[in-house]
Structures are given as structure tokens and as C-alpha cells.
């Protein structure tokens, strides 16, 4: 059952101060949406609403099919430091009520496909940043979600590893037919990973611009005219706020 459709309408959220105001968007099954905006603009808040961790003050999120599975890769990975790689991967399966035999098989397969074979007994603190991020990605995918939500997944990683991981994400996205929503503060990353790029800003935050991106996942050559033009439009939208 690949891909879920998301329909978010009029999301608003205040903490001490209003953070989000009237954020609406739609993501079609198997497509990806990149949220880009400055730190503190409410990206995590939107993703947590999508993931069902918090609810908005108003507005609604509709997933279809209704029972579509969703999982979240948290900012700073959210792995449990007291569990080794295999046990971190296993937890969602335990919570889903799978039998131990099946859990073992799926954990081994996920370690393999994330390029973490042989590291199953390592604790997160004993892994590199890139390996941790692979593990977090694997933990989010092991429950076979239709919607994958990623909160600045690669921002704490060196540039070379980041490119490898971005490619990995694209191949998973295309291979599994996932719907993806990701937050980033990197314009390049938003353009490489998002079919659609939502530029967020203002106070309280609203959508400054929504751009269709035909080159997502295809090329990362920043000198390509299509990519240069998109990047310029994102920068324009960010600069024009207030």
C-alpha cells in the first residue's frame, strides 16, 4: 500500500506566542514535500502535528487512506541511547505486536538495507553521525509506513556523508513509493528532495510560497538552469517576508 495522501487545512498553533497561522498544503501519494524556512519558524511544529504527536489549535490534517501508517525521524534522531542498534530497530515491531521470530528477520534485513550490517550491537553513542542517521531512518521505515516524516534529517552531518544519505533517501522514496514530508533549512536540500517546496516565514509563520519542482531527486548540479531558477525563487520568497 504505497504512499498516503495528505491534506492539511488551515493549521494554526500557538505556544506562548502564535507560531503558525493558516498553513494549508496537499501532498499526493508517493510525492514529497520539503518545508524550508529559518530556524524557529515552526517546521518541527508542523511535522509533529502531521505525526500526531501534538494537535493544532485549529485546522485539520486528513490522511488517506485513513489508516495509513506514518513515522517520524526526529530532529537529532531521537534514538534511545540505552538500546543498541538492533534493539532500537526492534522497538516499533514490539509495539506493533509482532512475534519475536518475525522481528529478528526484519531487523536483520533493515540493518542490511541501511548499510549497518555488523553494527547491530553498537550503541548510538558508538556510531558516527551518518550511521546514527541511517539507524534513525531504518527505525522509521521498519514499520513499513506510507508516510515518512523527516525533521532536518541531515543537517548535523558532514557534506559528503549528507549527499550519500540524500541519495539513499531518494532511492528509498522511489523504491518504496513513500510519501515524504521533510523539513530543512537548506535550500539545496529542499530542491533535491522536494517535489514541492513550501517556503515558510513571517510572524506568525505562514506559507510564503509554494513551488513545484520538476527536478527533485534527479540532479544536484547547482549550475543547472532549472535548479538555479528554483533556488532563486526560494531565496526571493524568504527575502520578501514581513
Amino acid at each position: 500500500m504505497p504512499g498516503a495522501q495528505i491534506e492539511a487545512r488551515g493549521l494554526a498553533k500557538s505556544f506562548q506566542a502564535p507560531v503558525l497561522e493558516d498553513v494549508s498544503f496537499q501532498v499526493r501519494p508517493g510525492r514529497s514535500l520539503a518545508l524550508v524556512g529559518p530556524s524557529g519558524c515552526g517546521k518541527t511544529t508542523i511535522l509533529h502535528i502531521l505525526a500526531g504527536l501534538i494537535s493544532g489549535d485549529s485546522g485539520q490534517v486528513e490522511l488517506s487512506p485513513k489508516e495509513a501508517g506514518r513515522s517520524l525521524v526526529m530532529q537529532d534522531h531521537g534514538l534511545f541511547p540505552w538500546k543498541n542498534a538492533a534493539r532500537n530497530l526492534e522497538l516499533p515491531l514490539i509495539l506493533a505486536g509482532l512475534a519475536p521470530g518475525e522481528r529478528k528477520g526484519r531487523v536483520a534485513a533493515m540493518l542490511q538495507s541501511m548499510g549497518l550490517a555488523g553494527l547491530e550491537r553498537r550503541y548510538p553513542s558508538q556510531m558516527s553521525g551518518g550511521q546514527r542517521q541511517r539507524l534513525a531512518l531504518g527505525r522509521a521505515l521498519i514499520g513499513r509506513p506510507d508516510l515518512l516524516i523527516l525533521d532536518e534529517p541531515f543537517s548535523a552531518i558532514d557534506a559528503i556523508t549528507r549527499e550519500t544519505l540524500q541519495e539513499l533517501l531518494v532511492s528509498l522514496w522511489k523504491g518504496l513509493g513513500l510519501t515524504i514530508v521533510l523539513a530543512t533549512h537548506s535550500i539545496d536540500e529542499a530542491i533535491f528532495l522536494g517535489d514541492q517546496v513550501l517556503v515558510l516565514g513571517g510572524r506568525p509563520t505562514r506559507i510564503l510560497s509554494s513551488l513545484d519542482n520538476p527536478v527533485a531527486g534527479l540532479d544536484r548540479d547547482q549550475n543547472l538552469p532549472a535548479i538555479m531558477e528554483l533556488a532563486a525563487r526560494v531565496r526571493q520568497a524568504l527575502a520578501a517576508r514581513v
Partner: peptide, 9 residues
């Protein structure tokens, strides 16, 4: 949050 996000729908 991390634990809650792993809870299957």
C-alpha cells in the same frame, strides 16, 4: 516524543 512517534497507528 520519540517513543510516542513509534507507536503504530
Amino acid at each position: 516524543d520519540s517513543f510516542q512517534s513509534l507507536w503504530p497507528r
